[in-house]
Structure formats: C-alpha cells, structure tokens
C-alpha cells in the first residue's frame, strides 16, 4: 500500500537540515511538494541559495529517508520557481533556531535580540556568514558573536 502524502510529509519532517540539524527540511521550507504520479513518488525540492553545497546532500538525505521506509520508486525534482524565501520557515523551525543560538530572519533586516542573553543591543559584523543563508552579528552586552538567518 502506498503511504499517504501526509505520512510522507511527516517522514520528511524527521529529515534534518545537514548544516543546521535542529530544524528539518520541512521547517526550512525547501520541500515544495509531495505527490504520487502513478506508482512514483515525486518530491519537489527548492534550493535555498543557488550555490548552496548542502542542496545535493539534502536530496540524498530525503531519498535515503524515504527508501528506508519502503518508498523505492521516487523522483526528486529541483524546482527554482518561485524562489525560496525565508518567509517559508515554519514557526516551529524559527523557535528551534533561537534555541540553537541562531537569530531567525525578520523583515526589518536584522535580529530582534541576541539569541543567548536576549539583549536588544546587537550590531552587524558581516552580511555573509558560515553558510550562504546566514550573516554574522554580535551582541554588545554579552559580547558574543552569533549567526543571524538573513532574509531573502
């Protein structure tokens, strides 16, 4: 029996992002669709940044997770339109980012507060960070640098 699409979504919500393992690929908003085409399961995945090296690993992780649960006939489709936006991060994912020490994206273009000490006194170090999706910020109260998941 073919697993339902809801079941597939639930399984994919257990696949961690390889760079930020506290959130799932579903939390990140990069799984754009799950659909059965006859006996073939088609999963549409969109890259965060066009050159993000994690994209290949993510597709492989999704494939492995589904094969482990018995879905052998599957196709991963890369979809670039509409382009990924940080608006697609789930609320659950945003909360987990904060717990992990990464400030979630905000329309204002910068973090609301330091994810460690919650101070509002924060300043930007660089718009580019350890992965394409992050910027480097610093808290001027606790003096710790931290990652900010930048808006795109």
């Amino acid at each position: 029996m073919k697993p339902s699409e809801a079941q597939i979504w639930a399984w994919l919500d257990d696949v961690p992002d390889p760079e930020i393992p506290v959130i799932s690929v579903v939390d990140l908003g990069i799984v754009r669709g799950v659909a059965w085409e006859g006996d073939t399961l088609e999963v549409a995945v969109t890259p965060t940044y066009s050159g993000c090296p994690a994209t290949g690993v993510i597709s492989m992780d999704i494939e492995t997770a589904l094969r482990d649960r018995g879905v052998d006939d599957l196709r991963i489709k890369t979809q670039i339109s509409p382009p990924w936006t940080t608006d697609w991060l789930s609320d659950k994912g945003r909360a987990k980012l904060v717990d992990y020490g990464i400030a979630p994206p905000r329309a204002a273009g910068g973090p609301d507060s330091c994810p460690r000490c919650k101070s509002k006194a924060v300043t930007r170090i660089s718009q580019f960070g350890s992965t394409p999706c992050k910027a480097q910020w610093r808290c001027t109260d606790c003096l710790e640098p931290f990652d900010y998941f930048k808006c795109i």
């Binding site: 940044y49 050159g51 580019f128």
Partner: peptide, 19 residues
Amino acid sequence: EEDIALANIALDLIGQTQM
C-alpha cells in the same frame, strides 16, 4: 570576514552558473 564574504559570493555565482 572578508574571506568568508568572498567565498560566499563566489559560491552564489557558481550556483547561478549551473542554472
């Protein structure tokens, strides 16, 4: 910081190249 920024920008450009 500049090293990281340059590497990130290069990566974006190579990703765009693939498309």
